[in-house]
């Protein structure tokens, strides 16, 4: 029975071919440092899942953001767990992505033919930091408010166009409901979309080029 269903699907989807190309391929023997990439992906997926469920109760408005998070923490069953995972997952993801970058650097894995893999990876590191920055304004607490004030002010010091960048980030000259709304939008739509696209390219390249090997002394 299962055999038949599989045959039917394989004929149309090419499952065997995908299995051969993606899973059943030879790769160099590598050490535990090479698990950091998949760990980053795993954390991204966890952030995605918990994040989606947080938006079920979270309200991106200065009046209600703080209260809605209080409700998530105290009023909703397991809200503390979902938010706890999302909160700590963010820190852990920054750490793991950074370590992944260092591993790639110290093994020289960014060299030919993997230049574009590095390029997408470094953009992913920046987007991860962007997720962190936009994410922690959302609770509208003291840390969020002041870190965003200082953070956007930093962008505002760019010579010439600084004021414009500041207003573009804040959606006006003040930190306001507009700022919160656009940070929320960036945090749940724009940046994750960018991350998903870049991860796709990153993974395609890893499958196409194979994972790098631990360089030997003569390399």
């Amino acid at each position: 029975m299962f055999e038949k269903i599989f045959q039917w699907l394989d004929e149309r989807l090419g499952l065997e071919a995908i299995y051969g190309a993606v899973l059943d391929r030879k790769v160099p023997k590598v050490n535990w440092w090479f698990t950091l990439g998949s760990a980053s992906l795993f954390l991204f997926v966890m952030q995605g899942i918990t994040g989606i469920f947080l938006t079920m109760y979270y309200v991106p408005s200065p009046d209600k953001a703080y209260d809605s998070i209080q409700y998530i923490m105290n009023g909703v069953a397991f809200g503390w767990l979902i938010r706890g995972i999302h909160h700590w997952g963010a820190s852990l993801m920054v750490l793991i992505v950074f370590l992944h970058m260092l591993r790639t650097f110290f093994y020289g894995a960014y060299k030919y033919p993997r230049e574009i893999t590095w390029l997408t990876g470094s953009l992913l590191l920046l987007l991860t930091l962007g997720m962190g920055f936009t994410g922690y304004l959302l609770p509208w607490n003291q840390r969020a408010y002041w870190a965003t004030t200082v953070g956007t002010e930093i962008a505002g010091t760019v010579p010439g166009i600084g004021d414009f960048i500041l207003r573009a980030l804040r959606g006006g000259s003040d930190l306001s409901a507009v700022t919160l709304a656009r940070f929320f939008s960036a945090h749940i739509w724009l940046l994750p979309l960018g991350i998903v696209l870049l991860i796709s390219v990153h993974m395609y390249l890893i499958i196409r080029l194979g994972i790098s090997n631990v360089p030997g002394e003569d390399e």
């Binding site: 200065p62 703080y66 820190s91 607490n141 003291q142 840390r143 969020a144 408010y145 002041w146 200082v150």
Partner: peptide, 20 residues
């Protein structure tokens, strides 16, 4: 737990997340 955003509270010491 963090207190709610309060631009008037001058006692608060602003710090970003550890990675910044």
């Amino acid at each position: 737990a963090e207190p709610k955003a309060d631009p008037n509270d001058t006692a608060y010491i602003p710090r970003p997340e550890w990675y910044f």
